[in-house]
Amino acid sequence: MHTVIRSYSGAGAKELFDLLEKRTSEIESLMRSVQGFVSYTLVRTADGGFSVTTCNDKAGVDESVKQAKDWIAANAAGTGASAPTISEGTVMLHAK
């Protein structure tokens, strides 16, 4: 499995997460449509938030990053949020 963390902070990040919170069912459907989807978590922080996506392989994670970028461009460009900081890697342990 492979996981990606997309962290948003700074100008517009809080507004982005306000919008994401209003549209969680849409976001969930979008992430579940990614080939090899395993799990998705969206977390609000004091200055924005982050998402964690786990897929069966790197191709799925790459697709989730593209889907997130495209959704934000189409639906949340007005928030002014900067591109996220992205961290990704191979999963060593996945407990649920």
Rank of each mutant, 00 (worst) to 15 (best):
D62M: 06
D57T: 06
V38L: 10
R44S: 12
V34A: 02
L30T: 08
L16K: 00
K58Q: 14
F50S: 08
T54G: 05
Q35P: 07
L19C: 04
L16F: 02
G10T: 04
T45A: 10
R23S: 10
A11Q: 15
A59E: 13
G10K: 08
G48T: 07
T53M: 05
M31Y: 12
E21C: 03
G12A: 12
G36D: 13
E28T: 08
F50V: 09
Q35W: 00
V38S: 05
T41H: 15
E63C: 00
Q35A: 09
K22N: 11
S25E: 15
V34H: 01
K58G: 01
V61R: 06
Y40Q: 08
V38Y: 03
V52T: 14
A11I: 13
E26C: 04
K14R: 15
A46R: 13
V43K: 05
E21P: 00
K14D: 10
G10E: 07
A13C: 05
S51M: 10
I27L: 14
F50E: 08
T54N: 11
T24M: 15
G12L: 09
F37Q: 12
G10Q: 08
S51Y: 01
G48H: 07
A46M: 05
R44E: 10
G48Q: 06
T24D: 13
Q35T: 09
K14V: 14
E63W: 00
F17P: 01
S51R: 00
V61I: 09
E21A: 14
T45N: 09
R44L: 06
S33D: 13
S39G: 09
L16C: 04
V43E: 11
S25L: 11
L42Y: 02
D62V: 01
F50K: 03
F17E: 05
I27W: 08
S29H: 09
S33K: 13
G36H: 02
C55P: 02
S25Y: 07
C55K: 01
T54R: 13
G36R: 01
D18H: 00
F37I: 09
S51L: 10
S9D: 14
F50L: 15
V61C: 13
E63A: 14
G10L: 12
S39Q: 11
E28W: 02
R32L: 11
V38A: 03
V38T: 08
G12C: 12
I27S: 06
D57R: 04
R32W: 04
L30A: 14
E15G: 02
G12D: 12
T45F: 10
V38P: 01
L30H: 06
G12W: 06
T41C: 07
E28I: 07
D47P: 04
N56H: 07
V43R: 06
D47Q: 13
G49V: 03
S33H: 09
R23E: 13
E28R: 09
E21T: 14
